[in-house]
Design a protein around this nucleic acid. Sequence first.
DNA 1: GTCTATAATTCGATAGAC
DNA 2: GTCTATCGAATTATAGAC
Lengths: 179, 179
Amino acid sequence: MRRSSVETKAVILAAARERFAADGYDKATIRAIAADARIDPAMVMRYFGTKEKLFAAAAEFDLELPDLAPEQAGAGLVRHFLRTWEADEGLQVLLRTGVTNEAAAERMRTIFGGQVMPLVIDLTGDPERAPLRASLVASQLLGLALSRYILKFPPMVAATEEELVAWLSPTVQRYLTGP
Amino acid sequence: MRRSSVETKAVILAAARERFAADGYDKATIRAIAADARIDPAMVMRYFGTKEKLFAAAAEFDLELPDLAPEQAGAGLVRHFLRTWEADEGLQVLLRTGVTNEAAAERMRTIFGGQVMPLVIDLTGDPERAPLRASLVASQLLGLALSRYILKFPPMVAATEEELVAWLSPTVQRYLTGP
DNA sequence: GTCTATAATTCGATAGAC
DNA sequence: GTCTATCGAATTATAGAC
């Protein structure tokens, strides 16, 4: 099959995101990604140079936190996180990989520290404990993703979005603004 | 060097636990484990048969939940979990591996479902929502381990045991017995 | 109990024809 | 743009000498 340059690159990248999200960095081989994209493995190297660079492109991600009213910040964050997880594979790539890959772990720290912390400061006006608050929020949100989407605890998989929001919102709200 | 059979086996197992805990299943090679144990790679195969069986032995783990007074169950669980994590590498092995290995994920489900759920039923006398409650507890505890020991968010690393217990106890307590 | 040698795979990466 | 062929490295696993 003959495709345009941008088209081919996009197909490869989509397959790479799926594989990295499902298998992590090491088990997601270039050969498997190429097979998914119905393309020759050599093409992957041609377009992205190395596996490392392909991963960097696949792990591109932005939380894109919305503006949230102070008293609804907890619920808003949980809901936004759940929807982002299901809409964008980037987060899944980072979590599956960050566990055994220092570069991915570093990006996780940057994303949550860099994006949740300003929200906390904005909500509380207290820069002092903002880093810890942001990390506590991250711990619950990532624990949610871990148990629901990665480890697949049956009750977490079965729960509806609204159930999870109802259970987790008070937790996140307290980490954000509580004593 | 000449060692007894049980001694050699114990040395190998200790090295395996460290490697699996630090690198996950795939990156922890038999060669690296053997090098750590200052032993020939062939010896590892001799004692454990396959890498898979070696992993099964290294991932042996028990939460060993203590009896907890109802009103202190949250704080007790958080504290017990933190100490168990640091004393026994088994949990770390399972978390690092469960993210990309279905067998380890299954064991995680068994451990948390099987050991936290009875505690919930004992505390609440309500078997109906016990599975979800146990999973919520697991989500926060595993999120704690993830952010503090794996991804190493600086504020979580810097926090003392008592700080973490103070922040997380109300969360866990509510998941256990709250509305 | 310990080690050497090696079989059998698999992977990332490169060179080059078309 | 696409593919074949292949290199070099690394891995699990096995056979067998000492």
